[in-house]
Design a protein around this nucleic acid. Sequence first.
DNA 1: CTCAAACTGTCTGAAATCTAACTATTTAAA
DNA 2: TTTAAATAGTTAGATTTCAGACAGTTTGAG
Lengths: 148, 148
Amino acid sequence: MHNPKIKEIEHLFMEFMPLYHKKLSPIFRENDDDEFRCHKNQKRAIMIIHRTKGIILSELGRYLDMRKGSLTSLIDALVENGLVERREDVHDRRKTLLYLTEAGEEYYRQMMERTSKTYQKLFSKLSEEEIEQCLQGLQHVVAALKKI
Amino acid sequence: MHNPKIKEIEHLFMEFMPLYHKKLSPIFRENDDDEFRCHKNQKRAIMIIHRTKGIILSELGRYLDMRKGSLTSLIDALVENGLVERREDVHDRRKTLLYLTEAGEEYYRQMMERTSKTYQKLFSKLSEEEIEQCLQGLQHVVAALKKI
DNA sequence: CTCAAACTGTCTGAAATCTAACTATTTAAA
DNA sequence: TTTAAATAGTTAGATTTCAGACAGTTTGAG
């Protein structure tokens, strides 16, 4: 019942997450020339809504690891700023579908432009081989997380 | 200057993080039989202090992606509950070193016991080969994050 | 069909986190 | 040596997130 390799995976995640926060999370704090003054979690929400258009609030909360109650006000602010819009779900009247507005998509593009520069700068410290291994490693980890 | 593989890595991280939050983060929310009623970030802090004994507040903040100002009160609560202790740094009087108390280590052990059960259950859905690939993948990603 | 269980989003007051100052200490350049 | 810049931790007030309760809707078992 107890698989030692899974235990190793657990340890690696505990090593991985602090490293991610230290090296990569700060990217979402960068607030220079952010006309809407979005904070970190608003930016994370925008990135997810862009990728999964029509997502509902509850599911967004799962992806962000935030409670749906917190998201009501977070999304309210984004709607007020004209970056996000709510639409009713025709097939399930409980649900509200979330989309980026055109302004939201534009904001997303600008955000990604800055993000990419930071990624390029950071990972250029690695050799081509290390980059390749990181890339393939991430693919395997993502594939695993999708299955569990 | 622009490396397309780094761009792929960036995309994979953007896919990875929401998946991690959805599948693995909830583990730290489990609050059954938690006599100290530690919330998620307190648990994350305890895990990091266990791994990096004698860490200072500012560095802990980087690993948690939290501001040092927030950590003063977070650590205060853990100290009051007898799980963490502050010690002065003899060589640099600005610094305060953080350690788990014996009760803190015991709390950590109990938390890890529950965590491990959840990891075992989740990852047992994967084949041996998929587990191996996830494991090796994580090793490469961690190695990369350490270098950048 | 009926009705309980599950799920949606919102609300309210409590709790946690953030921003931005501030003091103290160390580092390093002048 | 002197001094400016960088870093550590704390504090106060503003902002964000939380837990828990709520009403409306859908699902599914009997």
